[in-house]
Simulated scan of single mutants.
Amino acid sequence: MSTDYQTIRATLGARLRELRTEAGMNGKDLAARLGWQASKVSRLELGKQTPTPEDLWEWAGAVGRPEVADELVARLNAVQTRYRTWRRQLAGGHSARQELAITVTANTRTIRGLEVSRIPGLFQTAEYARHVFTALAEFRQTPRDTEDAVRKRLQRQEALYEPGRRFRFLVWEGALQVLVCPRGVMAAQLDRLMSIVGLDSVELGIIPFSAELRRTPSHGFWIYDDHLVTVETINAEMWLDDKDSVDLYERAWNWLNESAVYGHQAHRLIARARASLGLY
């Protein structure tokens, strides 16, 4: 579970504890009034369990503050909006998530991103994307709608050719080496990446293994204009829109960008990765 999610849930728990103490009740008293186990009250207040909307309505009533129920539910919705489990997002497969990505991209003028282990989805070939979606569905044990997902991913890439849009991406050199697909597919993907370097709308920086870093590229993230950051973890995707989070990820991107190479230097690193595949 992500630290960001735990922090948000702990904040909600602290608010619940505040309401209980203001009502002059201890945890056992409240549990008895609600007909709950005392351990449930403790878990909710410590942020170790996510409450349901019904839990929050009952809590507000039990402490004599029914008017705060809407506030508590709004806080819960913020938790659930910012922390989206892959199990919930991919319940019907990857296609719906790709449809959402198309919408978000259409409403964004500048996207900045960092990828450390794979090629950014906006630059993927159909065959590379096919292997990525297949592996993810197997790992997360979600429905396979691979062909629909691939079509949606390629549809999203149409934004690369729309006037007025900018795509500024950083890719850790290791992502050029990771074989998530057969060598022939990877070779075609790297060829595609080299062609991307010349697009007017794209700034592609490669962070070399040998670069001196102010900030290590610990995980990938995408920044949409200056108001939203998405971060993928193994079990969930974070959608962060508070100013502090956006500022933090912008700083991380800027620091990493200091170590990236562009143009012919980036092209050389991609070509070196291509040559290491041993294919003609």
Rank of each mutant, 00 (worst) to 15 (best):
Q80P: 05
T233A: 14
L114T: 11
R165V: 02
L114M: 13
M194N: 11
A101W: 01
A14Q: 12
I223Q: 05
P217E: 09
R112I: 05
A32T: 15
R88D: 15
V180L: 13
V202G: 06
A31K: 14
E54D: 15
Y83C: 00
I223D: 08
N77R: 13
G35R: 04
T125M: 04
M194V: 11
L248P: 03
A266V: 08
D244E: 15
L90Y: 02
D247M: 11
S42R: 07
P53L: 06
D241Y: 05
Q155H: 08
E115M: 06
Q157V: 04
A266N: 03
G113E: 13
W86N: 01
L248A: 15
V197S: 02
M25P: 07
G220D: 11
S210M: 02
L100E: 15
Y161W: 08
E173I: 03
G47C: 10
R251F: 09
V229T: 05
P182A: 07
Q157P: 08
G205H: 03
A78K: 01
H94W: 09
Y249A: 12
R165C: 12
A106M: 01
A101E: 13
W253N: 05
Q37F: 10
R215M: 12
V132A: 01
S210Y: 07
V261W: 06
I270E: 12
Y161E: 14
A69M: 10
A14W: 09
L170M: 12
A159G: 06
V73H: 08
L213V: 08
E115Q: 10
G35T: 10
Y224Q: 09
V202N: 01
G93Q: 07
